[in-house]
Write a protein that binds this DNA or RNA. Structure first.
Lengths: 237, 237
DNA sequence: AAGTGGTCTAGACCACGTG
DNA sequence: ACGTGGTCTAGACCACTTG
């Protein structure tokens, strides 16, 4: 019960950062240096470092060192019936960009068929989209849309900018958000890579069902958002 | 570039769980056993185990072993202008309970003063509440209420059941939710302990501002909820 | 080439829970 | 008393980045 060295080191470093002795973007002492400072070995120092990584304080880069994360203020994303990702951020004057990772036309899963009220032979488009805020990756989205609502959608996916702008311009559809389900998840390894995310930081997962203006279900969208880049704001007024 | 043993072990164990070879609540092989199975040592096996803990698959208990987490379906919590935590869950027939951890009357922080539209000499009550769902800790909340709206609130805090029921019964106030801000966070060590949370699983953080029925600001509430116990549902109909 | 973090070895001892 | 996970030691070698 002797104080637990790795916690001491971890607390020491955290306090150094909190108190501003190491500023954001700054390099921490190397692991070897820390070994000497605390008269211990690699393994213990790394355990301490891992604590800071897990809590989002720092990021380590092989061959370069460990650096204090920048803590940009997260952007409030307004969750309302009439907002798509892009318009929402544009209104706030935030630099924003989308990249279509891939798409396919496929048979819907039973759950999707039920939620989108599809017939036995109806198909869906599935679009995977990577979203950037201020030039850095901030979210991945998976949109599933009833094909019959957007026939030949694939014709418009070259030079992709925004799904909702395609819907508006090409199909004259302005989707209405009906329901959103929010929770927090640990990223998959693949998502962590795509989002350039320290693997241990959580994502906000939001699953939304949108409808055609005529009321019929249109799109299921599952977005996973870096919580250090974006927050959800719901206004009940 | 030799396959990375700890990832192999981690993947092996994850697959065993996914495929149902280890069911929920079941005990994994001991670390020593795994050392033998993979012809390696304690440190490597522990690194593999840590991966599973980080992703929420298992929990380790000193002296007992590592066990597969149960994956109870999270309860949808309906976020609407007229719901408090307790009523919301009661309506869904979910077993629910609150415990008042502590309270104080104090000077508001500048930000609180502004949000609650307080005068220079106004005070606030601060209540810290631990919430249970189905007998297990699920959330911690910090409520800050303008004292002038609930004079002598402290008289009613013995045998505490629910803040909103006190407001309703003793003060005839039914709060109205005005705004909620949602994000995902890594728990503090203290929160992890209180919530009996594997320290690396994320919490949903929700900051809400509620008003008196007459429209004046009443309460700021910051809740941190286990995302494996509870999800937020927003219905725009 | 030198310095950095990432993985691994082969041990040791401690704290905790169960029988 | 024994088995379990938790911490620690003192090294080694590798992969990557920078000068």
């Amino acid at each position: 019960m002797d104080e637990q060295l790795y916690l001491d080191i971890s607390e020491f470093l955290t306090n150094q950062i909190k108190s501003g002795n190491y500023r954001m973007g700054e390099k921490l002492p190397s692991e070897n240096t820390l070994c000497q400072m605390f008269a211990t070995n690699h393994a213990v120092v790394r355990q301490a470092i891992q604590c800071l990584i897990n809590r989002g304080w720092i990021t380590s880069y092989q061959g370069r060192g460990s650096y204090v994360n920048s803590i940009a203020k997260p952007i409030p994303y307004i969750l309302s019936p009439h907002t798509g990702f892009s318009e929402n951020l544009k209104e706030q004057g935030v630099l924003h960009e989308n990249r279509l990772l891939n798409w396919k036309k496929r048979v819907p899963h039973p759950e999707e068929r039920q939620k989108l009220q599809l017939g036995t032979h109806d198909l869906v488009y599935e679009l995977q989209i990577l979203r950037f805020i201020n030039q850095t990756p901030a979210a991945v989205s998976l949109s599933v849309i009833a094909e019959k609502k957007v026939p030949q959608l694939s014709d418009y996916l070259e030079d992709f900018r925004s799904l909702y702008s395609i819907l508006a311009v090409k199909f004259k559809i302005r989707p209405v958000r009906r329901r959103s389900l929010i929770d927090a998840i640990v990223p998959e390894r693949r998502e962590a890579v795509i989002l350039q995310l320290p693997e241990s930081l959580p994502l906000i997962r939001i699953e939304s069902l949108s409808a055609h203006p005529d009321g019929s279900p249109l799109e299921i969208c599952i977005s996973k958002i870096r919580s250090d880049r974006c927050r959800y704001l719901i206004d009940f007024n």
